[in-house]
């Protein structure tokens, strides 16, 4: 079996995906997991993807949001607060 990539690398890839599609697509945790599994093939698994999401959230680079369902986004000014 191929060696797994580092959790930080997966988190960075997720962050890039979110940043590059900001305003066009909202990512759920499952969407991000599927995307990195496709990107890294057998060098990534669901446990690693889960750890990467946790890394993203706990570092403050991303936050969970709720708009009908739960999504992962880059922190921004709350629209509803205006």
């Amino acid at each position: 079996m191929a060696e797994l990539v580092k959790v930080e690398e997966v988190a960075d890839s997720m962050f890039t995906m979110i940043k590059d599609t900001m305003g066009q697509k909202k990512w759920k945790a499952t969407d991000l997991t599927k995307a990195v599994l496709e990107l890294y093939g057998d060098r990534c698994d669901k446990t690693l993807a889960k750890s990467a999401i946790r890394e993203l959230i706990e570092s403050g680079k991303c936050v969970y949001t709720y708009f009908g369902g739960s999504f992962i986004e880059i922190p921004h000014k709350e629209g509803a607060e205006n």
């Binding site: 959230i57 706990e58 936050v63 969970y64 709720y66 708009f67 629209g79 509803a80």
Partner: peptide, 20 residues
């Protein structure tokens, strides 16, 4: 009321329901 959004506590994705 406006409902939802990004409010929460660090590290958690649940437990707080934004309302304005």
């Amino acid at each position: 009321w406006k409902h939802g959004g990004i409010v929460g506590v660090l590290g958690y994705g649940g437990g707080v329901i934004g309302r304005y």
